[in-house]
Nucleic acid binder design. Structure first.
Ligand SMILES: [Mn+2]
Ligand SMILES: [Mn+2]
Ligand SMILES: [Mn+2]
Ligand SMILES: [Mn+2]
Lengths: 152, 152
DNA sequence: GCATAAGTATAGCTATTGCTATAACTGCGC
DNA sequence: GCGCAGTTATAGCAATAGCTATACTTATGC
């Protein structure tokens, strides 16, 4: 930490200021993961059955219902959902927009993994985590690749 | 939640028991992210300068030094590192093993992203988050693809 | 219309991951 | 050998994300 950038050529380490950017980006993505998964799931549940209820969200996410209740409160505070007490939860315009974007990115990542030779089951599972860390540039590359490798 | 698997064909939703597996896997990966990043970084710092000091770890991760101190205590409890007070931190055999595995996976993911057309800078940044969600099967696919697309 | 089941809300707990402020220690320079 | 800069340790706080237990509300069957 006390030498100019070009004096220690021994290891595999890059410049600290550059290195830290990657970790910051990953932390920011991790911070948004849950929110993205929630609005995407809520949109899917509403599209599937007309309503998104806490118990169904909890069952799909694999968490307890009070955990969902608390998160929905936060999403409501953030203006992404609107909940009517003892009725379901609905997406605001902002929530719809984030859900659409998240769903599209999710779909592209999963399709790309399949295109590169991963089995559908593994692609489904890995995509659930990978999606949140895929930047716009990488998403473009994934889309191009998948498009070029579909038999349509 | 009260109907047999094949009765509501309207939406894009898969079986809840299948769906939940993806979310559980992503949560588990998220739980291990920090640990993997720490041991990998510690291994790199030791390889580069012979020692891993809290201030350097903190600077690379972009967090405060007490945050690193607390995490190192946890890693020591978990048997991954050994710290000597006011000296640096060192990896145990278990820590070395996890570091080697994490670094290799990280390297493959980054190389793969480049091979698929992502710029080196974006590949570096996205790989920092993506790596933790890549299963063994997907890693194999990435490795195969990158090997087939290197000009060596 | 009432009992009961299903769903939701709330309280209170824990663990994790971050922070700032400050104290304590080590190693060097002189 | 002492002082001081650098490093590490510790205390205390906050936000997030999970849990169980329990109370409350709604919907449904009869
Ligand atoms: Mn998703
Ligand atoms: Mn996801
Ligand atoms: Mn890594
Ligand atoms: Mn990482």
């Amino acid at each position: 930490m006390r030498e100019p950038p070009s004096s220690a050529p021994e290891g595999s380490l890059i410049d600290p200021e550059v290195h830290v950017e990657s970790f910051r980006q990953a932390r920011e993505a991790r911070r948004l993961e849950l929110v993205e998964d929630y609005v995407e799931l809520i949109a899917d549940l509403i599209g599937d059955g007309g309503e998104a209820r806490q118990v169904d969200i909890a069952a799909r996410l694999g968490v307890a219902q009070p955990t969902v209740a608390k998160m929905l409160k936060r999403l409501a505070e953030d203006g992404l959902v609107q909940q009517r007490p003892y009725r379901g939860v609905f997406l605001t315009a902002a929530g719809e927009a984030l859900a659409a974007q998240s769903r599209e990115r999710h779909r592209i990542v999963e399709r790309f993994l399949c295109a590169v030779g991963v089995s559908p089951e593994t692609a489904r599972r890995d995509a659930e985590g990978i999606e949140h860390h895929v930047s716009a540039e990488t998403l473009d590359a994934f889309r191009r690749f998948a498009d070029g490798h579909s038999d349509a």
